[in-house]
């Protein structure tokens, strides 16, 4: 499988990364080079092999359903590029 300029634009859009025509032109051969190389995994017989879920066996823990955190609004907002009235502020999303 290989990617063309339209596919790179689509992936970049899915990843929410703005790209210029020049970026796309440079990325097409780079990504194809990498994708071509990882395709060698197709040689490996994986019939009947379950995909690995956890490298080191561990159990899923449950904890008591109690509040363990909170009341730290100012800390949460401390690094926001724009915080107003105790909220994160973003450009208008509803017309």
């Amino acid at each position: 499988m290989s990617v063309d300029a339209a596919t790179v634009r689509k992936i970049a859009s899915l990843a929410r990364i703005a790209v210029t025509d020049g970026d796309v032109e440079a990325m097409v051969p780079e990504l194809n080079n990498i994708l071509g190389w990882i395709e060698q995994l197709g040689e490996v017989d994986t019939d009947g092999v379950a995909p690995l879920a956890a490298v080191i066996p561990n159990h899923q823990r449950l904890r008591e359903d109690v509040v363990t955190d909170g009341n730290i609004r100012d800390k949460v907002l401390a690094n926001a590029p724009q915080a107003e009235h105790g909220f994160f502020a973003v450009p208008k999303v509803i017309e």
Partner: peptide
Amino acid sequence: RRILIGTYVLSAGFYDAYYTKAQKVRA
């Protein structure tokens, strides 16, 4: 580059061919 590769291998239609395959080889 890595975000784009990752987005591609996880995208609809390619997930099994890349990501699931890789997790099997990882096993």
